[in-house]
């Protein structure tokens, strides 16, 4: 069994309204010096596959469902 972690991030240049609004809210709460906030989605999975096969499976999942290549990039790693 392998545990993989998949991170889905917005591509460079894609505005992140959720991150921007969070930053604004944090500033309103009095947190100063918040330079940027970006939202990143993480999935953790336990797979029957091992090593490279588990990574390959995670990448295939990203291509088929978890990421939209127009706006998102993905990164898969073994935990």
């Amino acid at each position: 069994m392998a545990v993989i972690e998949i991170k889905i991030e917005l591509k460079k240049g894609v505005a992140d309204p959720e991150g921007q609004n969070t930053k604004k809210a944090l500033e309103l709460l009095g947190f100063s010096g918040v330079r940027s906030v970006k939202t990143v989605k993480t999935f953790q999975m336990e797979l029957d596959a091992e090593g490279d096969a588990a990574l390959a499976m995670g990448q295939e999942m990203c291509r088929k469902l978890l990421a939209n290549p127009v706006i998102q990039s993905f990164h898969v790693e073994l935990k």
Binding site: V14, A15, P17, E18, Q20, N21, R63, N68, P69, V70, I71
Partner: peptide
């Protein structure tokens, strides 16, 4: 859009999405 049936510039249904409907500017 996720299915690739829109905007479908090249083929009836693209194998990957070629557009996205993303979070409103107002969030």
């Amino acid at each position: 859009v996720e299915l690739g049936l829109l905007p479908a510039f090249e083929e009836t249904m693209s194998p990957m999405p070629t557009a996205a409907l993303f979070t409103n500017d107002s969030a």
